[in-house]
């Protein structure tokens, strides 16, 4: 595990966060993960302001009708290889909002999802754990692509 992580740590991980109609509970926990108590930035996890710079997409919310096209566009704008993390129960399965007339989600109906983080909202530790998993997956994807 250690050896694997050291190899994976050759590059810091840039994360873009998309709110596809979430209640903001997950969003504040994502921010909490970056602030001093949890401090994900010490691992090189950095929140960026545009999907074009990102390796990982953190998607929250059950995807409302208005956000469907925007979410697809953001996914396309993110360079390969990329990993998508669905954060929160409503993004994973629709949660309490299932059956609503204004939902097209959950997220994996709109864009492919690699990692699911259930919880309403998930704890910051769970979000950091998901990002570490994304890291390992990203390494594998890079390996398959023939990159060093």
């Amino acid at each position: 595990m250690c050896a694997k992580l050291t190899k994976a740590l050759d590059k810091s991980l840039w994360v873009f966060h998309v709110n596809s109609g979430s209640c903001n509970g997950c969003d504040i926990e994502i921010l909490a993960a970056l602030t001093p108590r949890y401090d994900a930035e010490r691992f090189g996890v950095h929140l960026v302001g545009t999907p074009r710079h990102a390796d990982v997409l953190l998607v929250t919310g059950p995807v409302t009708r208005d956000m469907e096209e925007k979410l697809k566009r953001i996914y396309e704008m993110t360079p390969d290889p990329k990993v998508v993390i669905a954060v929160g129960t409503c993004g994973v399965s629709g949660g309490v909002f299932h059956e609503s007339y204004n939902l097209v989600g959950p997220i994996d109906r709109v864009i492919p999802v690699d990692i699911y983080v259930p919880g309403c909202p998930p704890r910051p530790e769970a979000i950091i754990d998901a990002v570490v998993k994304a890291w390992l997956k990203l390494e594998r994807l890079r390996g398959e692509g023939g990159e060093q």
Partner: peptide
């Protein structure tokens, strides 16, 4: 403002 309307009242 239409991005986050989830139809909570209807539910």
């Amino acid at each position: 403002c239409s991005q986050v309307h989830r139809g909570i009242e209807w539910l």
